[in-house]
Amino acid sequence: MASASMPLSTAVALKAYGRKSAVGPRTVAVVAVVAVLFPLAWVIRVAVRPTEAYVRNPNGIGGGFTLGNFASAWRQGLLGPALLHTLYTVPLGAVLATLVAAFAGYGFAKLRVPFRRFLLGFVILAIAIPIPSIIIPLFNEGLDIGYTNNYIGLSIVCAALYGSWGTFFLYGQYKGLPDALIDSAHMDGAHELGIFFRIAVPLVAPSIATVLALNVILQWSNILLQLVLLPTSTKQTIMVSVSALGGQYTAATPIVAAGYLEAAAPLLLIYALSQRFIRRGMFAGALNE
């Protein structure tokens, strides 16, 4: 902190200042961490509390420890099949969204595209449109064309609604690649697809991983599309099933809490595995603006 050229007195004063002022920030940090973690910790505690103990005293934290609520939620909410339904549609939707975004972002950033600005504006418009505002025609069109109640249909709709954000993000990343790299590959006789797969994609691979990971998380959580486009009860996703567990069947709160944790657990796992990409990607997004 204190450089060699700094007078000693200043360095000492600075050090003292730093030490004195660290008490306040530390307190604030602790308060923030507690405020953020307390609700989470409470819900986890509720989820592992025996139901009888919870019913007797919902406000307490005692009463022992059980994993039975997770089994009950899994059984009562039919979460096993529901998880499968999610797996039929979300991974495909995330891959499709990432794929179209990886191609389109490169096209807009590095290739000649007729009406480029207009088409790019078109894609950016899609980012800003809130899904609820078009949910009614999506539902009706889906009934007409046949993508309602169809897992692949939902994946394709998700690719459209989430690919636009990925396109814009990757467009910024491809833009950063030096043109000379691509031009010299041209001169060596490489064709466009070869350049895309052998040069461009490897160079922005971490950003593509970011888009993929965020797409899984966002599409997994998107209850509105899952609720509206998979309305048949035998096709419900895990998010929809778990919300029904809390709503219409009014299971005991510990069981509901356990169910919600089960529905969110895969996301926490994905986050743990890809957190480097997710947070790095967010920096890039914020600082590019």
Binding site: F103, A104, G107, F122, V123, A126, I156, A160, G163, E192
Partner: peptide, 14 residues
Amino acid sequence: FVAPMVALVAAFVV
């Protein structure tokens, strides 16, 4: 390169 994305946006947003 951009056609799939543009077509999806046209069909499911516009």
